[in-house]
Design a binder for these strands. Sequence first.
RNA 1: CGGGGUGUAGCGCAGUCCGGUUAGCGCACCUGCUUUGGGAGCAGGGGGUCGCAAGUUCGAAUCUUGCCACCCCGACCA
Length: 491
Amino acid sequence: MAKIITKKEENYSQWYNDIVTKADLAENSPVRGCMVIKPYGFAIWEKMQGVLDKMFKDTGHSNAYFPLFIPKSFFSREASHVEGFAKECAVVTHYRLKNDEKENNIIVDPGAKLEEELIVRPTSETIIWHTYKNWIQSYRDLPILVNQWANIVRWEMRTRLFLRTTEFLWQEGHTAHATKEEAMEETVRMINVYADFAENWMGMPVLKGTKTNSERFAGALETYTIEALMQDGKALQSGTSHFLGQNFAKAFDVQFTDKNGKLDYVWATSWGVSTRLMGALIMAHSDDNGLVLPPKLAPTQIVIIPIYKNNEQLTQINEKAEKIKKQLQDKGYSVKFDDRDTHKPGWKFAEYELKGYPIRLAIGPKDLENNTIEIARRDTLTKEVVNQDGLLNKVDELIDNIQNNIYKKALDYRKNNTRKIDDYEEFKRIMNEEGGFVEAHWDGTAETEEKVKNETRASIRCIPIDNEEEKGQCIVTGKPSAKRVVFARAY
RNA sequence: CGGGGUGUAGCGCAGUCCGGUUAGCGCACCUGCUUUGGGAGCAGGGGGUCGCAAGUUCGAAUCUUGCCACCCCGACCA
């Protein structure tokens, strides 16, 4: 088995092929830049979906669904939005094929040309605000707090499995509010939901902050982001929440009558996370033996592997294992008993490590004799033999412990790779040799941001919310700065 | 769209420079026996339009021309 290299950028393709193919997550699809999410990978996604969906509902949102196709004219209504997305849209121009008798081939029927082209959604603001226009007349119709789980298509020039695929799955929340304050609160609420999910479920520490003008979502007045640091020192934008102001309401003429009888435009937010989070999950925690999944998101938390020499032993172990499985399931754990006779125990050990199962139990003849069981944890790859009577408590303890440990490990990694730099030459060296987050002063201009990007390939990932004010001088121009911002090379 | 690279079995590759039996290796797959506490051993077996097309030649995976696809690095981006 080829080793999975997590540190070096140049080995990521190898790493992906192994993890992704062998761990049954996905494989390259014949369609340009698209991915097949294999059953095990999709199980992880479903798990994430389930948690996020509950978080959205708990914050008052409901699910809905809007069309995949957006008429081209909708798109051009919001100027900066169309500018941001125009270059990466798949466009439907015809609605029928026909048999070309000369060539004996199927061709696009020229007679089936659409009068107005349809855009395959790269995001749904336009069609949703077109729809909201009919839903909103009065302040009594507000707020609208809607989320949709959907697929979208962005025809990027360059794709990267999981991190930037042509088609991807995501959720997009689109809310409408009567006041600016309320919309702003919603924007911040949702970035906090994302940060909560990333840290407490994925075990992945994130920096919360706002984007600079040039990195902002097309059509937004403010973009909040969570930025995670991958094990190769590159940053990954993992979720965003946008304050859209009244831009889309104005573009789609969505006005409402307020309590005082005055007409005003509606305030909007949108927010989303995608299957990129699976890439983040993989890249944040995996090691040379494969995936490491946080217990809270692992589709199966515990696997039990029988070790036996003959059928008689297997029967005895089966009985015992099924009992243990039942007990664990009663406590709410997802458990798999792998009694396949087609693979040997050693093979199974390696297999479940590759797939990142948090806890592995092994039970064999020795254990039957001694009333013991072997318990192994994926995050540290350590194992111990415990008495069966204490197993349930041990599992409780381990599940918590593993969840906390992988978070702590990722946090330590980030701490060790976050540097305060005040010298531009040092900054350049760090970007070339070390990677990671660099906290530095910036004069606030797009010119400086652009210069740094051209010279170091590092961009401003965010202006952190939590960072303290600290007066300083821009690392490039020496002009005054009120606060450090976070730079990194990013995916 | 620029720069680089690769296309040979499901996966990973050798063979190509310098044309020559029936195209080979590892893993995986199938059958049988022995095995089973960290990816088992032995024996046998199946699987290929050598990316596509044309050309050169007695003969092409190998040489020539054209095309296509994919990967990596940039520009772009969740």
